[in-house]
Structure formats: C-alpha cells, structure tokens
Design a protein around this nucleic acid. Structure first.
Length: 584
RNA sequence: GCCACCGUAGCUCAGGGGUAGAGCAGCUGUUUCGUAAACAGCAGGUCGAGGGUUCGAAUCCCCCCGGUGGCUCCA
C-alpha cells in the first residue's frame, strides 16, 4: 500500500524530462507565433509524458497545422539555441506582454513579493517560472499528438482556447518506447476487447451510455456477483432489492431533487404522480430501516444491493464502460451507533482490500477527505466520524493521503484507488459518512437509556460501479481473465471430425464437474482452432486426437503457449478446479 | 454541453461529383489435418439519418444522431 519511493536516478530523469517537456512547450509556442502571428498565448505546462500549450487563434488548428508546427519546431531544435532567463519588475513585464491578455492576467495573479521571470530562446520570450533545459537541442525527441478545445483556466464560462498536446523525451528510443506503451494500452482498451471477446456492446438503437451485456460478459459478471454476495453474507450484510423508480416526494425528502437534479432524468407520470428513475439506492435502504422501530440492540444493520441507478451524464463524457448513464453499484448502507463506527469502518476497509486483491489488484492509493467549508451535521459528529476513519486506517495499517476539505457536504469520506497492470489508477471503493439523510428521514433507534437516538449512516461501494470495474478488469488482464473468471475455461479441440464424439465426452465430464467448456467442432484445421482459442484468450486448450482418445486423456496447451503434453482428463479437471477455488 | 476529428459490408479499411471495393468474418462445397490462419465458390451495402446544391451526391453544403481525443462536470 505504501507508495513506492523513487530512486535518485529516477528523480533525476523526472526532472530532466520535466525540463524537456516544458521547453518543448515554449518551442511549440514560438513555432505557433511564427505561423500565426496574431495568436495569443495562455499557458503551456509540462504534463505526464508530455506537454501542451493553449492559444487563442483566429481559426482552430487542423491536423495539417500540426505537421507544419512540428517542422518549425525541428528547425529551432536543430539551431541549438540557449534558453535565457531574466527577472523583470511588474511594470516591465506588463509592458513586455502588453499584447498578450492572458499573460497580463497571469501577471496580475502573481503576488507582489514574488519574482516575475521570463525565459527566452531565439527571440521568443515567455512569462515563465522555469526551469528549462540549457539549449533547444536537448529536446531530443518529440511529437505533437492532438488538438483539443480547452477553457481558459478550466472554467467553461471562459473563452475556449485551442490546445495542442505533444509528447517529448530525452531520446528517440524513449519516445518510441512511449509510443509502444500507448499501443499496448490500446490493445487492452476495454471497448476493443469488449467487441473482440464478445463481452458487451452499446447500441445506437438503445442509446449512448447504456450497456448491453453479452453472454460472455454476463457470465463474468455473474461470477463476480456470486462471489460478491457470498462475501457480504459472510460479513453480516443482508441482501435487499429495491425498485428502479420512486415518487418525487421520496427524492424531495432525500434532497436529491434539490442537490442532484441535474443528474436525474425527467420524471414520468404515474397516475398523476411524478416518479423519478433512481440515481441512488440510499432512500430505499432507508425505507428498510424505518419500516419498523429499531433498538440499539439491532445495530449495526448492514444492507446491501447490486442497485442499478440512472444518472444523466453529458454526451461528451461518456466512455465505454467507464462512464455510462445506467450502472450498477455494489451498494451498501451501514446503520450503526457512534460507538460502533470505527469497527465498522475497519471491517469495510479490510473487506475492500480482500475483494480487490481477489481481482488481481495489489497496489492501492487511499484518500481521506475531511469536512468542507459548506457542510451539514454537528461538528462533534464530523470529528468523531473523521477520527473513526483515521483510526480504522491506522488499525488496518494503511498509508493514506488527507484531502483537507475534500469531503462531501454531508460527511467525510474515504476513497480507494487501484493501480492496474500498466500502472494506471482507477477510483473504485468509496466509503462515505452521511449526516444528512438520517436527519431528513428522521431515522432513529431506541437507546439503552430509553431515549431516541439518531443512527450513523455509512454509504459504501467496493467495486464502485460494476460496469466500470468490469472495464478496469478487462484492461488490467488485457482480456486474459484468470481461470476462475474466464467465460470459457477450456476449449476442446478435436483434430479431425472423427474425434468430435470423444471431444464431447471430455466436455461433458468437465461441464458435469462445474467447468465452462466448449468444443470447437468447426470444419477447421487444428491450427486454426488453436489460433482462435488463443485470440479468445481461453486459459486451457485441450487437443484431442487418436492418441488422446486412446489414452482417455487430453493434450493440454495453455494460453501462454506452454505445452503440458497429454494428461488424463481427471488431472486436468483437478488442475482447473484448483485454480478456480484459489481464484486464480 | 463546448472544441477538433471521424462515421462506407459483422470487423478493419480503400474509394472523394458519373449511381460501390478489398481482406478477415459468414454461407456452400472439397479437404480430415498434431499445437497461432487449408482451398474454391457464393452471398452480403437505402455509403449514420434528414434536408439542400447539381442533369447527376457515398463524395460538396446545412442540420440531426452516434463515435474518438480533449475541456468542463463527476453525491
């Protein structure tokens, strides 16, 4: 869980790359100025793997412009000119950038006691804190990647600027390595694998952001759900189910219509009453709680549901399984007494790590978000809840970062992000206190003291959204799901048609033992069947020919390409079953 | 929602004012094969939808829908 410390050498390279990228941004700005003299400059920082620069220009850039700009940049780099820095007074800098409104705005935002510096190369002066490389030639390898619109200062009320993204490296090899990594990521893209492995789709006819699970994807999902349910039952959660719509009054009480309306779909009319599709499950779980009086002895109550919610997302943000309009949360609500929360949080955190590890993730980043400016609930409750989160994390022995003021208005929260096989980070688990809903729904329990008390309420989702988690899983495994999850665990490959009956016998034996097995009885050569099974990333290929039928065995090939030779069917069964029970 | 780009067969793509093409997949036939693609034939398209310009539009223009990369948003 601790974040890995970088070595001195790694830090040196990071610094060098940062300089290169920042310098590349300047060189690009200079090239743009040469080609578009009227361009106004905004900002141009180094970012992960590259850089960008934002410009206000008469017309948007085109892909052809990128090539022209690249050429101009190459000239500057070939000229090997030095970067020179200077410190200016406020007045001098304002004079220098008199024609550059964005720069003037930035200068206006620099505190009086801070120095204003510029970096200059080849006559191009930019307001800049630095640092840069000594000379343009150090930008050894770069490539302009894409054009995008971007709002000035990231605020959509502001002017939209034209942003050019580029990548830059200390050597041609490093650039090529980066491009290879991008290709690798593209091969893992869950949208591509979703189609190639026939896992899911979306349809124009259904609508964007709405996922259609195909048999193989649904198979994996059902395995995930079964495992999920077993683990919850083991840990004292109770399963509930709730409807997909609820009356407007419910959402008024919960406050969703007041605070979340822009993410909710318009209501439908049912017998003259307005009903809304649910954007969250909590109000329903609260109904379970409030359906009867509760005693302090009943607590904690842990209610869980795979609840499908619908939220309006703007068209431009939809992305495969990662950002959708209808998704299923592995939701749970824990209602407990203040003296129970810390243990409850420990339980949730340990549960989350167990669950995520089972799905092959072992690097986590944990964030604790505390009370924001605007918040509901008593200070004492906030303090108690936040302390419980901290104590729980300490007890579990987790390193975490604190996001001061980053909590929701209704309670502090804890987020867990996972790192996938190629180092990308994904938000999954979230654990949130809620001081708002218990109040709004007037939840209570009878305490040992005979008085009524307000329970604590904790929302938590471990996968987060099943759709998104599935997308992350696909990319993490690159479609090669471990045996326990693989939609087809073994493909039986008869060499000639006369081996089909035996192949079916083998399949039947394995299926009877609970495995997912398919016979490739197509009129194809064995080589083609192996190729297709490889491309489908089936963990086991069981080749059967005369020899195997004779020996009552199968020739086992793994998707790694490894050939295990001929094994008795019973041995293969045992081997696969062992992997399934170990969840590998 | 905003900016840019894209939308041609199930998939990947070519064609870019004179009414459509390849490979793979599919179907049919032949072949019955020992660890990543047998061979042959056939079929498959209102060129995302609608409107306009034109003698003629897949091609040019407008608008809508969908996708991609960003921005913004993300209880």
């Amino acid at each position: 869980m601790p974040v890995k410390q970088k070595t001195d050498e790694e830090l040196r390279i990071d610094d060098q790359r940062h300089r290169i990228r920042h310098s590349a941004a300047h060189i690009m700005a200079e090239a743009v100025l040469k080609l578009f003299p009227e361009a106004k400059f905004a900002i141009g920082p180094a970012i992960e793997d590259g850089f960008y620069y934002d410009f206000a220009v008469e017309r948007p850039f085109t892909p052809e412009d990128l090539a022209t700009i690249e050429d101009a940049m190459r000239e500057t780099i070939a000229a090997d000119v030095a970067f020179e820095t200077a410190e200016l007074s406020r007045g001098e800098s304002q004079e220098l950038f008199a024609e550059q409104p964005f720069k003037l705005e930035i200068i206006g935002g620099i505190p009086d006691d801070e120095a204003i510096s510029t970096y200059t190369h080849e006559g191009f002066v930019d307001l800049c804190r630095g640092p840069h490389v000594a000379s343009t030639a150090e930008v050894a390898a770069f490539k302009l990647v894409s054009i995008a619109g971007a709002y000035w200062r990231g605020d959509e009320r502001n002017q939209m600027l034209q942003r050019i993204y580029g990548t830059a490296w200390e050597s041609q090899e490093a650039l090529e390595e980066h491009l290879r990594r991008l290709e690798e990521a593209e091969k893992r893209d869950h949208r591509r694998l979703g189609r190639e492995l026939d896992l899911f789709s979306t349809s124009d006819q259904v609508g964007p952001g709405l996922i259609i699970w195909h048999p193989k994807g649904a198979r994996i999902r059902s395995i995930m759900e079964r495992f999920w349910l077993d683990e919850h039952l083991k840990r004292g959660y109770e399963l509930v189910y709730s409807p997909h719509i609820g009356k407007a009054t419910l959402w008024e009480t919960s406050g969703h219509l007041e605070f979340f309306r822009e993410s909710m779909y318009d209501p439908m009319d049912v017998d003259g009453q307005e009903y809304f599709a649910k954007p969250m499950n909590c109000p329903f779980h609260i109904q379970v709680y409030t359906s009867t009086t509760r005693s302090y002895r009943d607590l904690p109550i842990r209610l869980t549901e795979m609840g499908t919610v619908y939220r309006y997302e703007r068209g431009g943000v939809l992305h495969g399984l990662m950002r959708v309009r209808g998704f299923t949360q592995d939701d749970a609500h824990i209602f407990c007494r203040p003296d129970q929360v810390e243990d409850e949080i420990v339980g949730v955190v340990e549960f989350a790590f167990d669950l995520l590890r089972t799905f092959g993730f072992d690097e986590f980043d944990v964030y604790l978000a505390t009370k924001p400016e605007k918040a509901v609930g008593a200070d004492a409750d906030w303090e108690h809840a936040t302390a419980s989160l901290r104590n729980a994390l300490d007890r579990v022995g987790v390193d975490y970062e604190v996001d001061e003021g980053g909590g929701a208005f209704y309670g502090p929260k804890l987020d867990i992000k996972i790192r996938d096989a190629i180092g990308r980070s994904w938000q999954c688990t979230t654990v949130q206190f809620d001081f708002n809903l218990p109040e709004r729904f007037d939840m209570k329990y009878d305490g040992a003291d005979g008085a009524e008390h307000r329970p604590y309420m904790v929302h938590r989702a471990l996968f987060g959204s099943l759709e998104r988690f599935f997308g992350v899983l696909i990319e993490h495994y690159g479609g090669a799901f471990p045996t326990w999850l693989a939609p087809v665990q073994a493909e039986v490959i008869p060499i000639a048609d006369r081996h089909i009956p035996y192949a079916e016998e083998v399949r039947d034996q394995l299926v009877a033992a609970g495995l997912r097995v398919h016979v490739d009885a197509r009129n194809e050569r064995m080589n083609a069947k192996i190729r297709d099974a490889q491309l489908q990333k089936v963990p086991y290929m069981l080749v059967v020919g005369d020899r195997e039928a004779e020996a009552n065995g199968v020739a086992v090939r793994l998707r790694s390409g490894e050939d295990l030779g001929t094994l008795p069917v019973a041995d293969v069964l045992a081997r696969i079953q062992a992997e399934v029970s170990a969840r590998t």
